[in-house]
Simulated assay, not measured.
Amino acid sequence: MMGTSPVDPINRLLEKYNRIAEKAVEFYSFLKMPSIKLINYSENATYLVTDSQSTKKYILRVGRPGYHTKKEVESELEWLKSINQLSAITISLPLQGENGEKVQTIVYERQTFYCTLFTFLEGNAPDEGNEQELIHQFEILGEVTANLHEHSIKFRNQLQQITRLTWDYDTILGSTPKWGRWQHGLGMTEEKLELFEEVSGKIKERLNQFGKSPERFGLIHSDLRLANLLVENNHIKIIDFDDCGFGWYLYDLATSISFMEHKPYVPLLIQSWLKGYRKVRPLSKEEEYEIPTFIMMRRLQLVAWVGSRDNETTRELGSQYTEDTVLLAEKYLEQF
């Protein structure tokens, strides 16, 4: 009797997401014989949906079960509506289904999935390998990010009413980490645990001193990594507000260099970002000095994420990402 080769868990999971995506598009009758193609799987599964008659494109997001409540997803969409109406930032917008809902609820195999169809934006993600172009783009990104923060501050009272999680020390590295514990990162050793514990303690100490004043802490995108940016004709558009929540504004800078924090050109990216940011809103020398704290916090958060997720990105990064974090951690302790 011939044995059967084991099915990769990711493939099995994606087969499930494919079925859910097929069910979700049924809520949008304007889609004529739509084709559905998976383009990314990370926290969620993201699909390119193409109308076979008009050839018009859309983006469908199938949310990971248990990651957000329906109210939290609806709150994300409320912020998108506000940004679209009251700022010049280009974003992807949610579309309403025939049932009047912008968030479709699909129950499949006793799990609840929240799905949203978005408008499609043209453009390409910045190229991590093109250093000079990336430095130039980070000045534009800094300006766009500052405009996003200005919107957050200006409409703070209204935005405080929406239901989104908070990104602070406790939910990133502390007692209730949303993306898992950094202690469970891949390739962890006693030496790394001791080093990262010292770093984590220093981060907590400095953030307590830094504080959460309204000028420093508010509603942010929380995941401005390159994959969530689209560049077209020197214009940067922002996509995927799935992780938006209440956090430090400087955390948005830290997220923009996700997975490349150890690259030698990062200081140039930061200076370029600051130049663009300060075109729109001020940033004190004290705040600028604290940037490494936010970068280090994000890096440890990603160590946790890589260790607690199974997708193409985490498999590619593996334990080497933890290993590459050691030098960053040592440099951080030398500085602070």
Score class of each variant (00 low, 15 high):
10 I>N: 11
306 V>F: 01
272 S>G: 12
45 A>Y: 05
41 Y>C: 05
68 H>E: 09
297 M>H: 02
242 D>H: 04
174 G>P: 06
187 G>Q: 06
188 M>S: 04
56 K>R: 07
176 T>A: 15
169 Y>D: 10
16 K>L: 13
274 L>V: 07
126 P>H: 06
51 D>E: 09
291 I>G: 11
170 D>H: 13
143 E>S: 13
139 E>N: 11
144 V>N: 00
104 Q>Y: 04
131 E>Q: 14
77 L>V: 06
186 L>E: 07
121 L>F: 12
229 L>M: 08
190 E>H: 06
332 Y>H: 11
257 I>G: 03
255 T>L: 02
23 K>I: 02
167 W>E: 09
322 T>H: 07
99 N>K: 10
96 Q>C: 15
41 Y>F: 15
57 K>D: 10
61 R>W: 05
318 G>W: 11
19 R>V: 00
58 Y>R: 04
164 R>Q: 12
76 E>T: 10
22 E>K: 15
215 E>A: 15
103 V>Y: 02
48 L>N: 04
272 S>R: 06
288 E>W: 01
2 M>G: 04
237 K>T: 09
320 Q>F: 01
83 I>D: 04
175 S>P: 03
119 T>I: 07
131 E>N: 10
238 I>V: 11
311 N>I: 03
241 F>R: 06
311 N>H: 05
302 L>R: 03
300 L>I: 14
68 H>L: 13
212 K>T: 03
33 M>Y: 07
264 P>W: 08
33 M>S: 15
30 F>S: 09
121 L>K: 14
293 T>Q: 02
70 K>V: 04
265 Y>H: 04
23 K>Q: 14
294 F>Q: 13
135 I>C: 03
332 Y>S: 01
310 D>L: 15
5 S>T: 06
321 Y>C: 02
82 S>L: 00
216 R>H: 14
285 K>P: 02
42 S>V: 01
187 G>T: 03
163 T>M: 07
18 N>E: 13
65 P>L: 13
58 Y>N: 06
37 K>W: 07
261 E>A: 08
328 L>K: 00
291 I>F: 01
19 R>F: 02
273 W>R: 02
97 G>W: 00
141 L>V: 13
231 V>Y: 00
169 Y>G: 13
98 E>H: 00
185 G>A: 14
285 K>L: 02
309 R>W: 01
2 M>I: 00
86 L>F: 12
218 G>N: 01
257 I>V: 13
208 N>W: 03
206 R>A: 01
182 W>E: 09
263 K>H: 05
236 I>C: 08
43 E>Y: 08
88 A>L: 12
292 P>C: 05
270 I>F: 09
37 K>L: 15
193 L>R: 02
6 P>T: 05
277 Y>V: 03
211 G>K: 14
20 I>R: 12
10 I>W: 03
272 S>Q: 07
95 L>T: 11
336 F>Q: 00
239 I>L: 12
58 Y>L: 07
114 Y>F: 14
175 S>D: 09
62 V>R: 11
309 R>V: 14
328 L>Q: 00
77 L>K: 15
220 I>G: 02
301 Q>P: 06
155 F>P: 00
207 L>K: 12
136 H>K: 05
59 I>V: 13
308 S>A: 15
329 A>H: 11
291 I>V: 11
126 P>D: 08
50 T>G: 06
209 Q>H: 10
329 A>F: 14
235 H>T: 10
144 V>G: 01
109 E>T: 09
98 E>A: 07
297 M>G: 06
179 W>G: 04
